[in-house]
C-alpha cells in the first residue's frame, strides 16, 4: 500500500465513524412540554427538514398538544403521523397545526413524517397525578 492509500483508508474509516456518531449518537436534548395542572401540555415543534425539538418529554395521563409549525413546503414533511394514537394529519406549509392526544401510559411514542423518514420521539414519564 502506498502512503496515499493508507491515508485515504484511514480517512475513510474516520469518516464512517463520524457519520454513525453524528446521526446516531450525537446528543439530541429533550424539551419538556409546558403547561401545569390538568390542562394540555403543549410544545411548539418547528418542522424544517426535521423536527426541532425532536425529543419531547411529557407527563403521562395528561393531554399533550404538539403544535407543529411547518416552515417549509418540501413534500417530505407534509404529513405527521403519530402511529400509537392513530393520527395522520396534513401540515399546511407556513402554518401552525396542533395535534392533540393523551398518552395514558408512560413510554416512548414516535412521531414521524408520512413516510417514516423524519422522526421525533415523545417520552411520557409517570406524572404526579397520572398512573405510575
Amino acid at each position: 500500500m502506498t502512503p496515499l492509500q493508507i491515508a485515504v483508508t484511514l480517512a475513510g474509516v474516520a469518516a464512517i465513524v463520524w457519520v454513525n456518531w453524528y446521526f446516531f449518537l450525537a446528543a439530541q436534548r429533550p424539551v419538556v412540554a409546558s403547561g401545569a395542572g390538568t390542562g394540555p401540555q403543549s410544545v411548539r415543534i418547528v418542522v424544517d427538514g426535521g423536527y426541532s425539538p425532536s425529543v419531547v418529554t411529557v407527563e403521562a395521563g395528561r393531554p399533550v398538544r404538539l403544535e407543529f409549525e411547518r416552515r417549509e413546503s418540501s413534500g417530505c414533511t407534509e404529513e405527521v403521523v403519530v402511529p400509537d394514537f392513530g393520527i395522520r394529519t396534513f401540515l399546511p406549509a407556513h402554518r401552525i397545526t396542533p395535534v392533540q392526544f393523551t398518552p395514558t401510559r408512560p413510554g416512548t411514542y414516535e412521531f414521524t413524517c408520512g413516510m417514516g423518514m423524519v422522526r421525533g420521539r415523545l417520552v411520557a414519564r409517570a406524572g404526579k397525578g397520572g398512573p405510575a
Partner: peptide, 13 residues
C-alpha cells in the same frame, strides 16, 4: 433540504 435535515442530525433521500 439535506442541509436542514443534517442540522437536525437526521438524513434522508
Amino acid at each position: 433540504r439535506a442541509w436542514t435535515a443534517f442540522r437536525h442530525h437526521s438524513a434522508d433521500m
